[in-house]
């Protein structure tokens, strides 16, 4: 099992580098992952997306991809790409401590 060093802890990650254990996740870890991913400071809008993603995952068992993420978070596509420039669904899932979304759309 691969691990990622975050805040001095070695946490288990999958092949995409996303956390394996949700229990390892907390807001401090999220901020550290965001920094590693080049997202920078997490604003309220980032958090709205991250929370919406976790909520959808807990309900559906899969992290939402772009179209569903806009509906779940109420944040439009343009803004999602401004918040998470290198792929909103993928990056937000990583910061949220979830596996990469499986959906294609």
């Amino acid at each position: 099992m691969e691990t990622l060093e975050i805040l001095g802890k070695h946490l288990a990650v999958d092949k995409d580098g996303n956390l394996v254990n949700r229990a390892d996740w907390n807001e401090e870890i999220a901020r550290a992952i965001a920094a590693q991913e080049g997202i920078g400071e997490l604003t309220d809008r980032h958090w709205a997306v991250i929370r919406a993603m976790q909520k959808a995952f807990d309900r559906d068992g899969d992290a939402p991809s772009i179209r569903r993420l806009t509906n779940e978070s109420g944040v439009d596509v343009k803004t999602l790409y401004q918040l998470f420039p290198k792929g909103p669904a993928k990056k937000a899932a990583k910061i949220a401590g979830l596996p990469k979304p499986k959906g294609c759309i």
Binding site: R67, K78, Y81, I105
Partner: peptide, 17 residues
Amino acid sequence: LDIPPVREFLQMIHDAG
């Protein structure tokens, strides 16, 4: 499958940059 109609899909892709 959450695949939008052509117009919405194109708008989404355009908004994505």
